[in-house]
Amino acid sequence: VTRVLQSSIAETFYSAIDRVPQKFNRLRFAVAQIAAPTIAAVVAGFPKMERLQFHTAMLLDTPLPSFVGYFDELTDHSEFEAQERLQKLQGQVVIGSMDIITPKSQSEAICEKWNNCELKVIDGSGHMVILEEPEQISEALDEIISAAAISNHQDLSA
Rank of each mutant, 00 (worst) to 15 (best):
P37F: 00
F67P: 09
A10C: 10
S138W: 08
K113Y: 08
L59Q: 13
Q136H: 11
Q90C: 10
Q136R: 12
E143N: 14
T75F: 03
A57F: 07
Q22K: 09
E50G: 08
A149L: 11
F67K: 12
I100Q: 11
F80M: 15
E81D: 14
E143W: 10
E132A: 02
E135Y: 05
A41I: 01
A40M: 03
Q87F: 04
G69S: 08
G69D: 14
D18C: 03
S125H: 05
V31E: 14
W114Q: 04
L64V: 10
H55S: 13
H55V: 10
S107A: 01
F80D: 15
N25H: 15
P63S: 09
G91S: 01
D99P: 01
Y14W: 03
V4F: 14
I9T: 14
K113P: 07
E73S: 11
F46T: 00
D18Y: 01
K104H: 00
E50K: 11
M49Q: 13
L27E: 14
M49I: 05
R51D: 09
F71E: 12
R51P: 03
D155L: 09
P103K: 01
R85L: 15
F71H: 10
N152G: 13
E139S: 06
I150T: 06
D18R: 07
I144E: 06
F71C: 15
I101N: 12
Q90V: 05
K104N: 03
E81I: 14
Q92N: 00
G91Q: 01
Q92E: 03
